[in-house]
Structure formats: structure tokens, C-alpha cells
Design a protein around this nucleic acid. Structure first.
Lengths: 159, 159
DNA sequence: ACCATTGGTTCATACTGGTAACTATTGCCG
DNA sequence: CGGCAATAGTTACCAGTATGAACCAATGGT
């Protein structure tokens, strides 16, 4: 590659860099809109929604476990669970085997709500998939997979 | 398509729905990490960073204009600009032609900081692009474009 | 029996964002 | 020209997201 080629190559990279930045920004925006939509649609704050979703297939969770899964401080979880408890979506009971733990579980109401939210979220993603059309689906998924993996590796490089 | 084919087709869609949901979640996570990283790296809150970036190619901005571009309430902008002013990154001067307006502009320090941030952000996206590799780049960009457009159209359907 | 560990809560602090009420200035209309 | 509606920005208050430090209660080992 001679000097001339290298220059146009660099320009292409610069152009693509701006382009991918803008695309990601807009996609990010859409994702945030979706979570905000679910939140306002169900009248439940986003953090509480995320917490609710953790109970899929789990009967009991602890504050510590939730904190790890949501990647937030324990104290934050206390407040999130407070909110969910006020709305009668979860219960807190002491662990019969070790009174330090509190077992947090969904109430019947909570299970129903979680189900409902999950369903709507699925519907949205299904709509997205269908809108993409049968030909694009596979390439888009493969691209997202590649993107995800590259993002992770760039992330490692930042630390 | 007979009943049997339809069933497996639906199963495929369900599987892909879950998969795209997870992929988007992880990509979202990475994007949020990046903004948090820039914020902590420069010791400037995310909202203030976003505001700073609006000055590219603009000498003066108004509270109203910033509010529109950031899509937040005017009162929020007042606070964001307060923060930037405290850090001596922007100036507020009254518009000489209409005293209702205040003209907000970058200080020299602000211009330098904005430049620096912009550069790091570019670097990150360039690294991402390079990590994708020359063959993937074009398909990934095209996929993101398709995804963005489908997301917008799904969004319209939600309102 | 004591003490370090562990799980959870409380409190202070900071950032993001919204609404409503308020001030100040402008411009128009009677 | 005086008054009033519109406009720009600020202030005050509220809710949500998140952290870290200090703290309490229970456990478990020495």
C-alpha cells in the first residue's frame, strides 16, 4: 500500500469511526427508550423492573445475590426491594436456617406482573426481529455477536 | 408451509428473540460502561459531558437550544451549565441583542477539554472498528443500519 | 465467651431528570 | 404609550439511581 492508498484508507477508517459512533448512539437511545417505556407502562421504576426479572426460575433471592446480578451496592438493593415490597410484588422472610439472610420471593401478584412484563418485552423484540425480515435476521445476529465480542475486547483494553 | 414447519419456524423465532434480547442487553451494557468510563476518566458527570460535546462547531449555545438537543427540560440544563461553569469550562454572557437570552460558550479550558474527550471517544470507536476486522466492518455497519431503522419503526408502533 | 465474618439496613452524598412557579425582558396591540 | 402575552432562564421541590461508610444482628470458630 503506497502513501496515497494509506491516506484514503485512513480517511475511510475515520469516516467509519464517526458512522459507527452515531449508529451506536442511536441504537443506545432506542434501548433506553424501551426500558423507560416498560417502566412507565407498568408504573414501576427501571431498577425495580430489572430486579423483578431476576426471579425467572428462581424461588428465593438474597440481597447479596441481587446486588451481584444487578451489579449495584447492597444498600441500593435494600431500597429497590423496599419499593417492590411497598407495591406488594415481593416478600421478605428470614432464612429459617440462618437468620442473617432474608429470603426475597415474588408474591402471586409479583409473579403475574413479572410474567406480563416479560411477555411485553418479548413482543417488542419479536417485532424487531420480524421487522428485520428473514434475510437480514441471520446477518444482523452474527454482526451483533461480532460487535459484542469486539466491544468486550476493547473494554478489556481500557482498564 | 405445513403445520410441522410452522411449529419449528415459530420455535426458531422464539429462540432468536431471546438471543437478540440478550445480545442487545450486553451491547447496551458496554455502551453504558463507555459513557461511565469517559465520565469518571475526566471527572465530569455524564450529562455535562454530553453538553460539552454539543459545542462542536458552535460558538454560542442557549439554554433552550441545549435543552432541545439533549432532549431534557430547561431546568435541567440550568443545572448542567451551573456545573460546567463551576468547573470553568463554559461562560454565560447575556445576549447583547436580547437580554432574555444568555449565550453559553466554551472557555479556552473548555475547548481543550472537549477536544480531549472527543479524541478519546474516537479512539475507542476506532479500536472497536479495527477489532472487528476489515471483512466484518462493512457487514456490521450495514447490520447496525438495518437494526437502527427497524428499532425506529418498532418504536413508532409502540406509541 | 469472645471476636471476626457475613448479611442487611441506615444515612449522607451525588447525579439525572421532571414539573410548576417565578423573574426579567421583549414585542405587540389597542 | 401602557399593559399584556410570549419568551428565556432560574428556583424550588420531587423522585429515581447509585455509592460508601457506619452500623446492627446473627453465625461460627477458637
Amino acid at each position: 500500500m503506497d502513501a496515497e492508498e494509506k491516506r484514503t484508507h485512513d480517511e475511510l477508517i475515520d469516516y467509519q469511526t464517526l458512522r459507527i459512533r452515531d449508529l451506536l448512539e442511536q441504537i443506545l437511545e432506542c434501548c433506553l427508550m424501551r426500558t423507560a417505556y416498560l417502566s412507565s407502562r407498568f408504573g414501576i421504576p427501571q431498577a425495580e423492573l430489572r430486579c423483578l426479572m431476576l426471579f425467572r426460575g428462581e424461588r428465593y433471592l438474597t440481597v447479596k445475590g441481587i446486588a451481584q446480578k444487578l451489579d449495584v451496592a447492597k444498600s441500593r438493593v435494600t431500597k429497590i426491594v423496599d419499593g417492590l415490597e411497598r407495591k406488594h410484588l415481593v416478600n421478605r422472610i428470614p432464612d429459617p436456617e440462618d437468620a442473617r439472610f432474608k429470603l426475597i420471593s415474588l408474591t402471586r401478584e409479583g409473579r403475574e406482573k413479572a410474567e406480563e412484563i416479560e411477555e411485553l418485552n418479548q413482543d417488542i423484540h419479536r417485532a424487531l426481529l420480524l421487522d428485520l425480515g428473514p434475510e437480514s435476521r441471520k446477518t444482523v445476529m452474527a454482526s451483533l455477536e461480532a460487535l459484542r465480542s469486539s466491544m468486550e475486547s476493547v473494554k478489556q483494553g481500557l482498564v
